[in-house]
Every structure is written in C-alpha cells, then in structure tokens.
Design a protein around this nucleic acid. Structure first.
Length: 479
RNA sequence: GGGGUGGUGGUCCAGCAUGGUCUACGAUUCCCGGCUCGGGCCCGGGAGGUCGGGAGUUCAAAUCUCCCCCACCCCA
C-alpha cells in the first residue's frame, strides 16, 4: 500500500477535478458556468478552515461584519483605477420582473465599494481608529478564461476580506506586517507552503500603494496565488471621502489596508497534500479525523461491534472528530478505499486479532504506515499521531516547494530551468520596471514580485542593463 | 484573443469510417435478496437514456451537413 503520486503530478488537472467531486467536497455539475455546490463534507472542511481564520482575526482586534451583495452604479464609479480593472467583469442587475430598474445594481466583484461609503459615515474621530473589520462573502466576476473549480470561478463562494482604517501611514504599515504574520500563521496551520512576494508596480491591486501576495506551487508546476495583503494608503479614503478629526482638531483622510483569502486556499490544501488515492487532509481541519472500521469475522461480530462503539466514545471524549463506519453491506477493503479518497487522516481497524491482544490497528493516511497500539492508550496515541501527521505534512510540502524554487543568472538559464522543473525561478533584479518586463518577455514567464521581508541582494549585475542587482525577482507561470 | 479535442443512463465509456442488424455495448453506481468480511470478493434479480440543443439531408440519423451551446487541453 505504497504512497504514489504519479497521476497526481502527471494529470493534475483531471486528478483535481475528479478528487473534488468523488471525495464529496463539491459538485461542479451545476448548470451555471463557474459555479459549484459545496457538498456537506466539503462544507464542513470549508467551515473548519474558516474558523481557523476567524480565530486568528478575532484575536487580533478584527470584528466580523456582513455587507450587502449589491452595489449601486454610483458606488462602483468612485475609485477610477479600481473600477477600470473590474468593469469588464461586473455582473449587472438591470431588471425587476419586466420593469427596468431606474438605478442599475452590480454584484460586488470585491467589497471596497460596499464597505467604504459606510465607513465614511462611521469614522468621525481619531478615537474611532484603528478600525478593523472583516467578512466572509461570495463575490462575482465574469471570468472569460476557462473556469476551474475553486481556482477560477465566476462566483467566488468563499471570500474572506479584511479592511482596516488607521490614523497614520506608519500604523497602516504596521498593520500590513500584522496581516502578513496572521496569514503566515494561517497557512502554516494548514501545512501549505508559500513564498511571500511584493507584486511589481504593474501588477499590484488596482488602487493600492503596493500589494503583497502569497504564492504556492501546484503539482503541475504552476503558481497559485492564495492570499494578498494591500496597503491602500489614502487612495480609497480620498475617493470615498473617509476622514477623521485628529487630536489637533484637523480633518485628515484615513490610511487603509485590506487583505483577502479565497476558496483557493482549499484548492491549495487539496493539491499540495493529495496523492493518487485522493485527498490527504491535515488533522487540524479534517471534517473526520479518524474513522473506525470494524472487521467482523465469523461469530465475533457482536464483540467487534461493541468494542468499536466503545473506542468511538473514548475518542469523542478526547475531542477527536471520529466516525464509526458500521455499514454491513460493504467489505472493509471497499471502506478503506472510500475513506482514503476522502482524506481522513487516520484509520482505526478493530478486528478479532485486535480483540485477542487488546490492540487497535492504526493506519496513517499520509504515509499508509500501519501499526498497533494498546487499547487503553487509544486516545493519547491517536492525538499523538495527529500531531505527527501534521508536522510530517508540513515538512513534506515545504520540501516539495523548496525543490521547485530555482535560481537563474540570465533569461536563457531561467527558461531552461523552468522547462525542466517548472515552479518558481529567482533572478537578480536591478529594480527597473523596463528590465522586469524584459524578463517577462524573454522567459515567457510572469513576474511574481520581489521576495518580501528579505535583505537585499549583493553582487551580480542585471543581465539586461548591466547595472548592479539589488533584489531577488521571482518568475513563474500563474493560474 | 488564437488553435485543438470532446459531449451517449448518476459516473467512465463502446458504437460513428461504410446511415438500417441500436429495442444503444460494457463496466461501475443505485435498489432487493443471498454469501462474505484484516485491501475494491462473488452469485441471483431489478432500476436508470430528450445519444449536448436546434435546423437540414434521407424511406431511414447516435452515425452525414450547417448553426448554436457547453466542457477540457495547448498557445498568446
């Protein structure tokens, strides 16, 4: 029962689509393009992931809110640069029944235009600051490229966005650092590896001063953006007229940040940890952390059933999300396959042999390693195994990403490296936009940005202009 | 934006070249019953289809022609 990742890597697109549906996460047969149904199992996973996020935000002074889905055309037009980037993708509500609406309404493509006009009413004085809100909502964008479950959709069903408001630029800068800390902790808890890059000027969030993004690499070697943090400076507060009175009695525009994470994090969770058998979910967020499978034999059915129920209770008491699979029409083997597909981190087999020796047979989903533990140590050994699985998943995924980050000295080298190994190519950059764009042209890759929070690079010259190199520039092929 | 491949019970698919033998193959899934049970066992019985949509050619279309829709892949 070895762990294999052939199909996972070679036919990632098919694998991904199939696993999402067969494991019971989502059904994408819904008749509207780019929209899918979260099935009960997927919905539970989604909630566990979101609750992790909620805990992190609640602990750090954020408050959850819920703003309306529809925005007016006036609201849409407030911030010119921001609007322009989304206007081709807006869904419009133009009629009620057969009556044309006097004022057409748009479905939010993101919620700046819904939230900021209200903030203009709520923020009056420096005592109201800082203010941090977040919400988890659906947003709509008319994607024209091919849609892909969880990755490129028309209804983003799960968009967690935080918006913060501050009295000074420095405070907004500190909030950006805080957001990066929060997101890093979040992805670490999910064992999803990432690189953090400052997006180049030509690819930042429209309206932002600058944008920071979290990227990971999927099995096909393409880069998936899984989170973003933006310093908006006063660009939006000026457009939406969000001002406050400072301690000296003067009116100032607020300084803002915003940061978001979408269901792409679930896509990453699935893709990064999976194998040819299906999902592998980290115990921290798995809807079912352990499944008990009774192995009935001859006349011992009653004893096996009784023991299985007893173990289930013991584990539940210890706080384990456990499921007892008592379906008697299926053989244990077919149950094994099913729960492996669904990514349950730990399987517990209880059969005549275990009864005889007062053991439990445990099988780890991530390594398929099989071992016995004494029955009376059930709870402690199960919990211990969860933390081993968690750290093993982190280690494996980080190592996998590390092997897909390469260093190149010139465009030819970058192209060769990418062709052979995909992933991310790092090169030295002189910080000039023209040279950055040349890197893109000559490699056919896209600039992800410069490494965030790392000291500048010394030595070497830009192979394009010959000037001194000061930054690490990352290139890749994004989704 | 450019190119390619495909759409047939819930799922995966055969059939299409050479229209008729299609009352549409097979597997899986689902329901009923039996036998089993430490890796998808097996045996009976049953359910499930606007052949993506529309128009056309024809005595006759899943099969040929045209238009449309949708999905997936590759390239910009």
């Amino acid at each position: 029962m070895a762990v294999e990742r052939k199909r996972w890597q070679r036919e990632f697109g098919d694998w991904f689509h199939q696993v999402i549906w067969e494991s019971g996460l989502m059904d994408y047969r819904y008749p509207v393009k780019g929209c899918g149904v979260w099935l009960p199992y997927g919905f539970k996973l989604r909630n566990n992931v979101l609750n992790l996020m909620r805990r992190l935000l609640d602990e750090t002074g954020h408050e959850e809110t819920l703003f309306p889905l529809m925005i007016t055309s006036d609201m849409v037009k407030k911030e010119a640069i921001h609007v322009k980037s989304f206007e081709d993708q807006l869904f419009w509500v133009t009629k009620a029944g057969d009556r044309k609406l006097d004022e057409e309404l748009a479905l939010r493509p993101t919620s700046e235009t819904a939230i900021y006009p209200m903030m203009q009413l709520w923020i009056r004085s420096h005592a109201d600051l800082p203010k941090r809100v977040y919400q988890v909502v659906n947003t709509f964008r008319y994607e024209t490229k091919a849609t892909r479950p969880l990755i490129r959709v028309r209804e983003i069903s799960t968009f967690k966005e935080a918006h913060t408001f501050h009295a000074t630029f420095e405070e907004a800068e500190r909030q950006v650092e805080e957001a990066v800390r929060i997101y890093s902790q979040f992805f670490d808890s999910l064992a999803i590896p990432y690189v953090v890059s400052k997006r180049p000027e030509w690819d930042k969030f429209p309206g932002a001063l600058y944008s920071i993004a979290y990227d990971t690499v999927l099995p096909d070697g393409k880069v998936l953006q899984i989170g973003t943090v933006h310093n908006l400076a006063q660009n939006f507060s000026k457009a939406f007229d969000i001002t406050f009175e400072n301690a000296e009695g003067l009116r100032e525009y607020v300084w803002q940040t915003c940061y978001g994470i979408s269901e792409r994090v679930i896509a990453a969770l699935i893709a990064v940890h999976g194998d040819d058998k299906g999902l592998i979910l980290p115990p921290g967020v798995a809807p079912i952390q352990a499944v008990v499978i009774p192995i009935p034999y001859k006349s011992k059915e009653a004893a096996v059933t009784e023991k299985s129920r007893e173990i289930k209770k013991v584990l539940e008491k210890a706080g384990v999300r456990v499921w007892l699979d008592e379906r008697d029409k299926l053989t244990p083997g077919s149950k094994f396959y099913e729960w492996e597909l669904k990514g349950v981190p730990l399987r517990i087999e209880i059969g005549p042999r275990d009864l005889e020796f007062r053991n439990l047979t445990l099988v780890r989903r991530d390594t398929m390693e099989k071992f016995q533990v004494p029955e009376e140590e059930a709870a402690s050994r199960v919990l211990e195994t969860f933390s081993e699985i968690q750290s093993s998943l982190s280690r494996k995924a980080s190592e996998w990403l590390r092997q897909r980050i390469h260093q190149a000295g010139n465009p030819e080298e970058a192209v060769a490296l990418f062709r052979e190994k995909q992933g991310i190519v790092e090169v030295g950059w002189c910080s000039k936009e023209r040279c950055g764009l040349t890197w893109e042209e000559e490699t056919g890759l896209q600039v992800l940005g410069i490494a965030w929070g790392e000291t500048s690079l010394n030595g070497g010259v830009c192979p394009i202009c010959g000037e001194k190199v000061g930054r690490v520039l990352r290139l890749g092929k994004p989704y």
